[in-house]
Computed example of a mutant assay.
Amino acid sequence: MKKAAIVQFEAVHEEVIPSIDFYLKSVGYNTGSYLNRNIYKRKGDFFRDAGFEKVNYSYVTIEKGSDWAELMETVKGDEGLELLVLNTFQRKSVVNWSLNFDIPVIGIVHNPLLFLAIPDIKNILKANKNIYLLGLAPHVASYLIANIPFMQDRVGFVDPIVWEDSSREDKIRVIDEGNTKRALSIPGSVNFKNRDYAALIEQVHLAKLRGMSSKNIGIRFLGGGKDRADLIDLIQDKGVNEFFDFSEVNEQGFVPYDIYLSDLKNSSFLLPMFKTSDIAYRTYKISSVISSAVGNSIPLLGDSWTNIVYQTSGVVYNTNLLSDKLLEISLLSEEAYLKLCNQAKETKYNWIKRSIAQLEQATSYFESKD
C-alpha cells in the first residue's frame, strides 16, 4: 500500500483525524498521524477514549520554531511517503511548512475566511499544483471554489463522521432521580456568540408552561467555555433549572474526553442551536454538532435552514416553534424514536460513501499529473 502522513499543528480538531485516516485507508494508503501534544494535555487521549485503536498516531511538541523544523525532518524521514495531509490548513505558517515537501499535499480547510486571508494565497496555489484542498462539507467546498475559481478541479470535501458504531436502542436513559427521559445534548464550548442559548431557554420555558415535564426530557451542555457561568445564571433566572445539566469540567475548564464521549453517546438528540442570523455555519463553516450527530447515528433537532444546508436526519422545527418539538420529543414513543435512529444510520452510511468517492477524486488528480 501507499503511505500518507497526517499532521495537526494546532491543539484543536483532533476529532477529524479518524475520518481522514479511514478514508485514506479506504483508497489504499497506510497512515501515520502527528498531533500537537497540547491536545492530550487539555482533554486526554481522544483516540483511546473513543475506541480508535487502529489509528497510528503520536503526540509531538509543536511550540517553538525548532519543533516545526524537527517535525519536518521526522516526516521527511518517513521512507516511501507519497502524500502529506495537513488538518486545519488555514494559517500561513502551515502553508509555508507544506511548501518544503515535493510530494502531493492535501489541506483540510476548516475556516475558509482564515485560509483566504493568507497573504498571496492565490499565487501560492497557482504556483503549486501539488496542493489539493478539502472542506468538511459540500457547502464549504462550494464557498472555496466561489472565491478561488481556478481551483475548481483541486477542491473537494470529506465528512468527519467516522466514529465507533454503537447501538441506539437504549437511549431512553435513567439520568437522575430514577426518571427515564430523552437526553438532548449541545456539544461544543459554551459561547453566546455561536449559539442562541437565550432562545433555547425561552422555548423550554414555553414548553414547561404547556405541560412539558423534566421527568421526560433533559438538556445537557457538553462543553466548558467562557460563557458557561453566565448561561447557568440565565437558566436560573428563567426558572427552568430542572431541565438542564452540564458535563463536568477539569481544572483547566475543559470537559475531559472520557466524560464528553460518554455524555455524547448517551444523547437521544443533538441540538446545533445556531442563531437565526448566523450565516457562518450555513455558508462557509461546519459545526462539530452536525458531524457528531451523523457520526454517532444520533438524530438531530435542527432548524429548517440548517436542515436545508446539511440534509441530515432527525426532527426539524420552524423558527420560534422549537417549544412544539420539545414537547413532542418528550412524549415520543420508542418505536418512533428508533425509526429516526435508523434514518440517521442510513445518513452516516451515505456520507461515508460520498467522502470516499471525494478522496478517490483527490488522489486521482495527483496520479493524473504523474
Rank of each mutant, 00 (worst) to 15 (best):
275 K>S: 04
293 A>V: 00
276 T>C: 10
299 P>M: 04
268 S>M: 08
281 Y>W: 12
253 G>V: 08
254 F>D: 03
257 Y>R: 09
277 S>H: 14
291 S>P: 00
283 T>V: 10
288 S>Y: 13
267 S>H: 03
268 S>H: 08
297 S>K: 04
258 D>T: 10
277 S>V: 12
269 F>K: 01
298 I>P: 04
256 P>W: 01
257 Y>P: 05
297 S>L: 00
283 T>Q: 13
260 Y>P: 02
278 D>M: 15
259 I>T: 13
274 F>P: 02
276 T>L: 11
293 A>F: 01
292 S>L: 13
264 L>Y: 02
279 I>Y: 15
280 A>S: 15
291 S>G: 08
295 G>M: 06
266 N>T: 07
266 N>E: 14
253 G>E: 11
257 Y>K: 12
295 G>F: 03
297 S>R: 04
293 A>L: 02
268 S>N: 00
279 I>C: 06
261 L>V: 04
256 P>V: 00
288 S>T: 11
299 P>L: 09
290 I>L: 09
272 P>C: 11
271 L>N: 03
280 A>V: 05
273 M>A: 15
283 T>A: 06
255 V>A: 04
277 S>L: 07
298 I>M: 03
265 K>Q: 14
274 F>E: 01
298 I>H: 00
262 S>K: 13
255 V>T: 09
279 I>A: 11
258 D>Q: 12
294 V>W: 07
253 G>D: 13
278 D>C: 13
286 I>T: 08
264 L>W: 03
292 S>R: 09
271 L>G: 02
264 L>I: 05
299 P>V: 06
261 L>P: 06
